[in-house]
Amino acid sequence: QIFVKTLTGKTITLEVEPSDTIENVKAKIQDKEGIPPDQQRLIFAGKQLEDGRTLSDYNIQKESTLHLVL
């Protein structure tokens, strides 16, 4: 699982696999929060994550925290 922290300070927990794409993660966030993926920007280690890449591409491991910017 990974954590996604929103600007409001809320933390969302997501069940993911390293092979999941960023697009996939955004879809999971939409399921939980109702935020359309095209409004979501995910930041990890100061980098904006691209939809077509996977979590493992960015070396995002379990218990990692991503930041969600709208």
Rank of each mutant, 00 (worst) to 15 (best):
Q1M: 14
Q1K: 12
Q1E: 08
Q1A: 09
I2Q: 01
I2W: 02
I2K: 01
I2A: 02
F3R: 06
F3V: 05
F3E: 03
F3N: 05
F3L: 06
F3S: 05
V4Y: 02
V4A: 03
V4R: 00
K5H: 09
K5A: 08
K5L: 12
T6E: 04
T6Q: 07
T6K: 05
L7P: 15
L7D: 15
L7A: 13
T8V: 07
T8S: 13
T8Q: 14
T8K: 11
G9W: 04
G9K: 03
K10P: 05
K10Q: 09
K10G: 08
K10L: 13
T11M: 13
T11Y: 10
T11I: 13
T11R: 08
T11K: 07
I12D: 00
I12S: 02
I12M: 06
I12E: 01
T13A: 10
T13V: 13
T13L: 10
T13K: 09
L14T: 02
L14N: 00
E15A: 12
E15F: 14
E15C: 15
E15Q: 12
E15V: 15
E15P: 06
E15T: 14
V16I: 09
V16N: 02
V16P: 01
E17I: 14
E17Q: 14
E17R: 10
E17N: 14
P18G: 10
P18K: 07
P18E: 10
P18V: 10
P18R: 06
P18N: 07
S19R: 08
S19F: 10
D20Y: 06
D20N: 07
D20V: 04
D20T: 09
D20Q: 04
T21C: 05
T21G: 03
T21I: 04
I22R: 00
I22M: 04
I22E: 00
I22A: 02
I22G: 02
E23P: 03
E23V: 07
E23R: 14
E23D: 08
E23A: 14
E23T: 08
E23Y: 15
N24R: 15
N24K: 13
N24T: 14
V25F: 03
V25H: 00
V25E: 00
V25S: 00
K26Q: 02
K26G: 01
K26W: 03
K26R: 05
K26E: 00
A27S: 14
A27F: 14
A27V: 13
A27Q: 13
A27C: 13
A27G: 09
A27K: 15
A27W: 12
K28W: 05
K28C: 05
K28A: 07
K28L: 09
K28R: 07
I29N: 00
I29R: 00
I29D: 00
I29P: 00
Q30T: 10
Q30I: 03
Q30M: 12
D31G: 10
K32C: 11
K32W: 06
K32G: 04
E33S: 12
E33P: 01
E33L: 13
G34Q: 06
G34D: 06
I35W: 13
I35N: 03
I35P: 04
I35T: 08
I35D: 03
P36L: 07
P36W: 06
P36H: 12
P37W: 12
P37E: 07
P37M: 15
Q39V: 10
Q39H: 09
Q39D: 08
Q39P: 03
Q39S: 08
Q39F: 08
Q39N: 10
Q40A: 05
Q40S: 04
Q40C: 09
Q40F: 14
Q40R: 02
Q40M: 14
Q40P: 02
R41K: 13
R41G: 07
R41C: 15
L42T: 00
L42P: 00
L42W: 01
L42R: 00
L42C: 01
I43Q: 07
I43H: 11
F44K: 03
F44I: 03
F44L: 05
F44S: 03
F44C: 04
A45F: 09
A45T: 05
G46F: 05
G46D: 07
G46I: 02
K47N: 10
K47Q: 14
K47C: 10
Q48N: 10
Q48G: 07
Q48M: 12
Q48V: 13
Q48D: 13
Q48R: 08
L49A: 02
L49V: 04
L49M: 06
E50L: 09
E50S: 07
E50R: 07
E50V: 08
D51R: 04
D51V: 06
G52P: 07
G52F: 12
R53Q: 08
R53K: 15
R53D: 05
R53V: 06
R53W: 10
R53F: 15
R53C: 15
T54N: 05
T54C: 08
T54I: 06
L55D: 00
L55F: 03
L55H: 01
L55V: 08
S56D: 12
S56M: 12
S56Q: 13
S56E: 12
S56N: 10
S56I: 09
Y58K: 01
Y58H: 04
Y58E: 03
N59H: 10
N59K: 09
I60W: 02
I60L: 04
I60C: 04
Q61D: 10
Q61R: 10
Q61H: 11
Q61I: 12
Q61P: 14
K62W: 09
K62M: 12
E63I: 03
E63N: 13
E63C: 14
E63H: 15
E63R: 07
S64N: 08
S64M: 12
S64V: 08
S64G: 07
S64D: 15
T65D: 03
T65W: 07
T65V: 15
T65R: 04
T65F: 07
L66I: 13
L66C: 01
H67N: 08
H67D: 12
L68W: 02
L68R: 00
V69Y: 14
V69N: 06
V69H: 12
L70R: 08
L70I: 14
L70D: 10
L70W: 09
L70S: 12
L70G: 09
L70K: 07
L70Q: 11
